[in-house]
Each structure stands twice: as structure tokens, then as C-alpha cells.
């Protein structure tokens, strides 16, 4: 007992101060792919370089990268593209609307890359209203039931990491609970497999209202490596109403924490609609 105590004292406090202090990411960290404004538009890589179909190159000036599909492999920046795409360091990518995850790249009069503003909001997003209700009902705390709906387990391990001493999300009033009946919402990893769909629906229905749904990882956001097929629904929003999307493959623990705080309305999304005109 004494030995354990001495060891703990020696280790000291390892817990991060995130989100109060920014998280540092290593030099090689692969965040969101970003357009390099001013490079020749024609140098952008073809859509086929992306293994998950996250890149869409339409007619003329339409070029988008869907962060909900992106597995952050870095390949689009590796292709010879005259530096038109680079891998950025941003990981706080969570958004309330699926379309907020689109990086929209345009072409100016000189044929150069520009970054377009996100799609404007039509009405106040439903997610915001739920977040408001959750906020009103529950204050700042959020208890979530985790649902593995067919992940590769990487996202799940990152959720486990959030409970570890380095992140200790309980310090923020966030916890993962055993029963959906004790939960304020579900946090779902995986693309929702056919074999899990009934269990996913039933678990969600057992959560009292108001309830949030957070989709974690490329598979949760869009199907990721398992798009719609005989075995996969192709994303959480095919089955449940999603309030917050957390891109990543897997998202690092702080990225998931960012998404959870967004769901409860304690933080503002960086990727959000332009104000309606």
C-alpha cells in the first residue's frame, strides 16, 4: 500500500489541461488535408488517389474533400500536386452538420486554388436545439453509453484512453456509463454493421430523452472503410439522428473530447455554417 502511494507521488499529476490549454500535436501528426491557396487548381490530385472516396472532383471549379470520409492517410498530399494539398495539423474537426465536414475548394479567375466558405445554415441545426435542451436539463455534465457498431476498435481504445489518468474526462463531468437508461446519449463508433443494427436501435431507444448521438471516426461519420454494403449500413446517421460528427481514423482522444464538449454546448465548433443571409 505504502509502496503504491510512494509510486503515485513520484509520478505526480500526468493529466492534461485540455481543453483549457491547447493540445500539442507532434510534427508528423496527420490532421485534416487542406488546400494551399494560390497554387494552380489544375495541380490538385485526381479523386481516385483517395482510398475511401473522400475527394470529389466535379466539373469545373468544384473540388471537395469530405473530412467525414477521410482516413487521414496523407496520400493526397503525397501525390505530385505541386503542393496544392497539404496535410494540416488541425484535429478539432467535430461538427454538427455532415456538410460542415466538407472542405470546399474553388478556383479563382487566374485558375488558382481558393478555399470556399462552408455551406450557409438553412435553419438552426437540430443538434444545437438538442444541445440546448441537454444543457438546460443536465447542466454541464454528460453521461454517455458507448456503442461499438462495428469499429476496428481503434476509436474504442481512444474512448478508453479518455478515462485514463492522462485525460481523465471525469474531471469535466463526462463519463461513460454501463446502462443506456443511465445515459444522456450514445457515442457510437463503427459504420453500424447489419449484425449490430438491431442492438444499436434498441440501445438508443433505451436512452431517456433528450438524448444526444455522437458519431466517432471515419466509419461512424460516413461508413469510412466500410461504406454501405451487405454487411454495413454505411454510417451512424443511416440509423440514428446524429448530433455531432467526430472525424478521424481514429480521432485522437482530445479530438473526441472536443466533440463531446461540442455536443453538450460547452464549446463552439470550428467547422460551422456561415451565418444565414
Amino acid at each position: 500500500m505504502l509502496r503504491t502511494l510512494i509510486q503515485s507521488l513520484r509520478d505526480g499529476v500526468v493529466t492534461t489541461r485540455y481543453p483549457d490549454a491547447p493540445a500539442e500535436v507532434p510534427e508528423r501528426f496527420r490532421g485534416a488535408p487542406e488546400p494551399e491557396v494560390g497554387r494552380p487548381f489544375g495541380a490538385l490530385p485526381t479523386a481516385s488517389v483517395c482510398p475511401t472516396g473522400a475527394i470529389t472532383a466535379g466539373e469545373g471549379a468544384a473540388y471537395t474533400i469530405d473530412l467525414g470520409r477521410c482516413i487521414f492517410c496523407g496520400r493526397c498530399a503525397d501525390e505530385p500536386s505541386d503542393g496544392a494539398i497539404r496535410i494540416g495539423r488541425e484535429f478539432e474537426l467535430s461538427a454538427r452538420r455532415r456538410e460542415d465536414l466538407l472542405v470546399r475548394i474553388g478556383r479563382d479567375a487566374d485558375g488558382r486554388v481558393t478555399e470556399l466558405a462552408p455551406e450557409p445554415a438553412d435553419t438552426a441545426a437540430l443538434g444545437e436545439r438538442v444541445a440546448e435542451r441537454i444543457h438546460r436539463t443536465l447542466g454541464r455534465s454528460l453521461h454517455l453509453r458507448h456503442l461499438d457498431a462495428g469499429s476496428c476498435n481503434a476509436c474504442d481504445w481512444e474512448l478508453v484512453a479518455l478515462l485514463a489518468p492522462h485525460y481523465d474526462v471525469r474531471r469535466l463531468g463526462i463519463d461513460f456509463v454501463a446502462s443506456p437508461r443511465h445515459a444522456d446519449g450514445v457515442i457510437v463508433t463503427g459504420s453500424v454493421t447489419r449484425n449490430l443494427e438491431p442492438a444499436v436501435r434498441r440501445t438508443f431507444e433505451a436512452v431517456p430523452e433528450p438524448r444526444v448521438v455522437i458519431a466517432v471516426g471515419a466509419c461512424g461519420c460516413s461508413g469510412g472503410i466500410a461504406p454501405a454494403s451487405y454487411a454495413s449500413a454505411g454510417g451512424v446517421d443511416q440509423i440514428l439522428p446524429v448530433d455531432v460528427y467526430v472525424p478521424g481514423c481514429p480521432p485522437r482522444p482530445e479530438a473526441i473530447l472536443f466533440g463531446i464538449l461540442l455536443a453538450v454546448g460547452r464549446i463552439e465548433a470550428k467547422r460551422r455554417p456561415a451565418p444565414a443571409r
Binding site: 507532434p26 496527420r30 496523407g74 478515462l163 492522462h166
Partner: peptide, 22 residues
């Protein structure tokens, strides 16, 4: 958990991903 986290941070330093992907 603490030991694992320390290693996963080194994974991210080495490879850019905590699960050594890429």
C-alpha cells in the same frame, strides 16, 4: 493505462498516428 498512453504518444511522434498507422 499510463504506460500504454506514454507509448502511444511515442507512436504518434514516430508515425503521426497513435496506432502507428501510415
Amino acid at each position: 493505462m499510463r504506460l500504454k498512453e506514454t507509448l502511444q504518444r511515442e507512436n504518434e511522434q514516430l508515425t503521426g498516428n497513435r496506432f502507428l498507422r501510415g
